[in-house]
């Protein structure tokens, strides 16, 4: 018999629910990634998977191994923290790159950056500040 039979029922139900919530949200996020029509809409879709999609599955895994081994198993928590901190960084960088590319091509979807008034700064604000 698999070790799954050793998990008592009161723990199995919340673990299963967390698994389904996490996987469901990740699935919906990917549906959005596939179906939404513009890049700036699509950039919102993976955040579903990276916020509560990851949290649900990580919490399910933590609960399962904690119950199975009879002591708190917390290392999956690090995975959740890591994903929560890194995904916004990558998405922000990607958004910046996309805005920059669209602006240099003069794409009308993105608000163009009008030059600064002369009082605030001498140089026209057409370049990307590095």
């Amino acid at each position: 018999m698999t070790p799954m039979a050793e998990v008592p029922l009161w723990a199995a139900i919340p673990i299963a629910a967390l698994l389904l919530i996490g996987a469901g949200l990740t699935f919906i996020g990917s549906v959005g990634l596939m179906r939404l029509s513009s890049f700036y809409d699509r950039i919102h879709a993976p955040t579903l998977g990276s916020s509560w999609g990851t949290a649900g599955i990580v919490m399910a895994s933590m609960g399962y191994f904690s119950v199975l081994q009879g002591r708190p198993v917390l290392h999956e928590f690090l995975l959740g923290v890591f994903v929560t901190v890194t995904t916004p960084v990558t998405l922000t960088l990607l958004a910046r790159a996309a805005v920059f590319r669209d602006r240099t091509e003069g794409n009308p979807d993105v608000p163009a950056r009008e030059p600064l008034p002369p009082a605030a700064g001498a140089a026209p604000a057409d370049g990307e500040p590095s």
């Binding site: 199995a12 299963a16 389904l20 996490g22």
Partner: peptide, 14 residues
Amino acid sequence: MSATILATALAIAQ
């Protein structure tokens, strides 16, 4: 019982 619940949820999630 709990093995069935967990196995089903895992299969759907995967």
